[in-house]
Design a protein around this nucleic acid. Structure first.
Length: 809
RNA sequence: GGGCCCGUGGUCUAGUUGGUUAUGACGUCGCCUUUACGAGGCGAAGGUCAUGCGUUCGAAUCGCAUCGGGCCCA
């Protein structure tokens, strides 16, 4: 057998990745009737690089899939890119330096498609370098024909169920992007601002109201104070006159007015924030719209019409001051709800939008959350809290260019909604004709296309349906859905996970998966969140280049589910060491297995000791993988391999392998044990380190097992009869003696192979019988001429069993 | 402000249905070429388990409070 001295990870990893792909090792076989195990992977957005957080999450999920594959399941493991929506538009605009407004809609869409395809080609190489094992032939991008069809079909079916509807609503709106956005696409930012104390007038009397948004004065529709606030109770039922604009608004009491904030009395405008919207709803207030879709003041703002929001604010403040209506102003910092993608403060604008009606289904959603198996379990409460706090239906329309079209046209006269036929999907209403000639309601024959596009989550919430060929291949879909597993970041439980549950329930009346694993974040070595501005980003490609993919995988598996993992170079270096150790230990083992025929007479005690422990290990690793505790597999396996197998067992059996005088039987017993143990350890390590284990497997075991790849070989079976408590105790006692003598040699500055003339062991009779049975191995390992039992003045006491020993040089 | 999670040697971490001396790794120090590996082996030092109170025969583990950190939501 010719085994190279060194293992070249960089060369080998590329070689095996190509081998797996060309040999179709991970291909899904629809004809395979084994139970299916499926994974709903997050399609990464093409707008960014693959970052270290992606790497961790994909690797963790991949270990599970590799484990399940070795259990003999039929693996359904798709991979997709999300190149849909606003994120891609912004990426393309930034990359090409051209704005969507500068060209025709068609041109911009083509540009986005072209750029995202380029990005995907580049990104795909990054993802493959992680050594993950999806069936690449099942790859998709969310803008391809099939996804567009699926997404539009979902919309049409929800429309037919009365779940999709269109209406005027105050909508969270980004004036910079000029689009409606979802609640979840906003975030709160602490920003500096000015609080203006403005003079209103109540029956000739001054009333001071504090606001940071005086430009909304024309949209003021009422004034609120807290019901218990004695200062303002006397105003109940009266009207306040709005300065500069002169209209009168009612003064009312409401719990949501904070007596501590500003002057304790607050104006309600349509609409500065979500509280304004709530007041508008609960108190049936009129809606005055003063800001347009692009953040300019409308005609309702009178002389300020046409000004941008900030300029209008400035002008109004100046006018107030001039007229003596500005009582006071103070610099403050307060939280502002901004669009997370561009940082612009959001507005609430009254527009016609498409919604998915689901507020009536909260109980159903909570039930679904309870049906899912959450790993870790406490993540369910994030989902629950989100569902309980929902206030609006799901707004699914976006006023953008690049995205999946609504399959909808409107009658130009009566706004009648014309929906595409499912057989015509996918459609682009701005380019395709509607399925009817005349409006069934008014007879008009002119139609206008819906130009809005679907929210990107409206599509990515269909990943199970997209992957499993929903309503295209029923037999496949029925076998796949609900899927076995969803892998999800904890930051997107409230959108990607929740929205997928919503679609699953609305379409299939069933939860989309059985199990959900939630992975944590990767932090920088100082345990701080990585961000571009801090400059502490770690690129996985650099880590792979420097330490290898297996080393990165080894690191990624050290975090438990849900837990954040700090990135540390030393942990990657440990992975490199592990690869090296696996290589060297295997090299040694396999050299001694050359020509071995797997024949066995009887096992030596120390061999039975190792095999007993090995079978326990198999039990632990199998259970841990089944519970998605890959970090426990990694830790337990690493410790067993390194310490028990390499440091103790290999040293014990060397003599039997090298010294013919020990006898053929003793050698064969060692060979059998080495074969079984190394093979089992490699297989259990394979999901974590797929390349090095494959390399070693092919040096020897592939031929023996007649199997093309370790990753489709059989997972080690726990043989209960091999677990033997007595043998384990015997071996543990021998190990205790070995480590005591090693310690003695070290303390006396002797080499571990220094010869000793005698070891005298003072122990009870039972132990004596036990140790006797390992005497030949003990003598060889300790390099002792004789081992004797009996009373004597001791010079060492063992750690674990506290035997008294005497070592004579 | 609400919800959830986390605080264990210098650093990262195991252990959390209460029960011997709290696990392992990195780092530090000392010793050693075990016919696989010096990218290795053997060993040493280093922890009042964030703090306080409580429950208990017994608490890293359970309860309460405080302090600190993180994530999500408002």
């Amino acid at each position: 057998m010719d085994i190279p001295k060194r293992y070249d990870a960089k060369e080998a990893e590329r070689r095996w990745q190509i081998f797996w792909e060309t040999e179709g090792i991970y291909k899904f076989n629809p004809a395979d009737t084994s139970p299916i195990y499926s994974l709903d992977t997050p399609p990464p957005t093409v707008s960014g690089e693959m970052h270290i957080g992606h790497a961790m999450a994909y690797i963790q999920a991949d270990t599970i899939m590799r484990f399940q594959r070795m259990l003999g399941k039929s693996i359904f493991y798709p991979f997709g890119f999300d190149d849909n929506g606003l994120a891609t538009e912004l990426y393309v605009e930034k990359k090409t330096g051209r704005l969507a407004e500068e060209m025709s809609r068609h041109e911009f869409v083509e540009l986005c498609l072209k750029e995202s395809e380029l990005a995907e080609k580049r990104l795909l190489e990054d993802w493959k370098s992680l050594g993950i094992s999806p069936d690449w032939d099942m790859s998709y991008r969310t803008t391809n024909e099939w996804c567009r069809k699926t997404s539009q079909r979902s919309f049409i079916q929800l429309y037919n169920k009365g779940r999709a509807y269109r209406k005027y609503e105050p909508t969270v709106w980004c004036p910079k992007c000029g689009t409606a956005i979802a609640q979840v696409e906003t975030e709160d930012k602490l920003l500096p601002s000015t609080l203006y104390d403005i003079t209103f007038n109540v029956e000739g009397e001054d009333l001071f109201i504090a606001t940071s948004r005086p430009e909304l004065l024309p949209a003021c529709v009422s004034v609120f104070y807290h019901p218990t606030d004695e200062r303002y109770k006397r105003y109940a039922g009266k009207n306040a006159k709005v300065p500069l604009f002169g209209h009168e608004v009612p003064i009312m009491a409401d719990e949501k007015a904070d007596p501590e904030s500003g002057t304790g009395i607050v104006m309600c405008c349509t609409a500065g924030d979500s509280t304004d919207v709530e007041w508008w709803k609960t108190h049936n207030l009129p809606w005055i719209s003063v800001i347009d879709e692009r953040g300019k003041m409308k005609a309702e703002a009178g002389k300020y019409a046409g000004l941008r929001i900030k300029n209008a604010r400035k002008a109004i403040v100046e006018d107030l001051a001039e007229q003596g209506l500005l009582n006071d102003k103070a610099d403050i910092s307060h939280t502002v709800n901004v669009h997370e993608r561009c940082g612009t403060a959001v507005e609430y604008i009254m527009t016609k939008q498409w919604f998915i009606k689901y507020l009536d289904l909260k109980d159903l959603f909570l039930e679904a959350g309870a049906k899912l198996n959450w790993y870790p379990p406490y993540m369910q409460s994030r989902y629950d809290n989100w569902v309980k706090g929902l206030k609006w239906d799901w707004c699914i329309s976006r006023q953008r260019y690049y995205g999946i079209s609504f399959p909808v046209w409107y009658c130009e006269d009566c706004e009648f909604e014309v929906i595409a036929g499912e057989k015509d999907l996918p459609v682009v209403p701005s380019e395709d004709a509607p399925p009817i000639d005349k409006c069934p309601k008014c007879g008009c024959d002119r139609f206008k296309p819906e130009l809005d596009v679907l929210d990107t989550w409206a599509t990515s919430s269909l990943t199970p349906q997209i992957a499993a060929k929903w309503q295209e291949d029923d037999s496949l879909f029925n076998r796949i859905y609900p899927m076995s597993l969803r892998s999800n970041g904890h930051d997107i439980i409230t959108f990607w996970l929740f929205n997928t549950v919503v679609k699953g329930l609305l379409h299939e009346n069933e939860i989309p998966w059985k199990d959900v694993i939630i992975n944590g974040f990767v932090l920088d070595p100082k345990r701080e969140k990585m961000s571009k501005s801090k400059g502490n980003i770690i690129k996985p490609q650099v880590s792979i280049e420097r330490y290898s993919g297996d080393a990165l995988r080894f690191w990624a598996c050290s975090a438990k589910l849900g837990e954040d993992l700090p990135y540390e170079d030393k942990e990657l270096r440990r992975g490199v060491k592990m690869i090296n150790k696996l290589w060297n230990a295997s090299k040694f083992t396999l050299l001694h297995l050359d020509g071995y025929d797997l024949k066995l007479d009887e096992l030596e005690v120390t061999d039975r000791w190792l095999l007993s422990k090995l079978n326990r290990l198999i039990g632990v690793c199998t259970d841990s993988f089944n519970d998605y505790e890959f970090s426990n597999v990694k830790k337990t396996l690493e410790n067993f391999f390194w310490h028990t197998f390499c440091d103790v067992y290999l040293e014990i059996v060397k003599d039997r392998l090298y010294t013919p005088e020990r006898g053929e039987e003793a050698k064969r017993s060692a060979q059998y044990t080495l074969y079984v143990a190394l093979l089992a350890m490699l297989k259990m390590m394979a999901p974590i380190m797929p390349h090095i284990t494959e390399e070693i497997y092919h040096v020897y075991f592939a031929e023996k097992e007649n199997c093309k790849s370790i990753h489709i070989s059989k997972w080690p079976e726990l043989v209960g009869s091999m677990i033997d408590e007595t043998v384990e105790e015997t071996g543990d006692k021998a190990e205790d003696v070995i480590s005591a003598v090693r310690k003695y040699k070290t303390l006396n500055k002797k080499a571990l192979n220094a010869q000793i003339s005698r070891v005298l062991i003072n122990c009870d009779k039972e132990t004596e019988v036990q140790l006797e049975s390992t005497c030949a191995d003990l003598k060889a390992t300790l390099h002792a001429d004789v081992i004797e039992f009996g009373d004597a003045e001791d010079n060492i006491i063992t750690e674990k069993y506290e035997f008294k020993l005497r070592v004579d040089w």
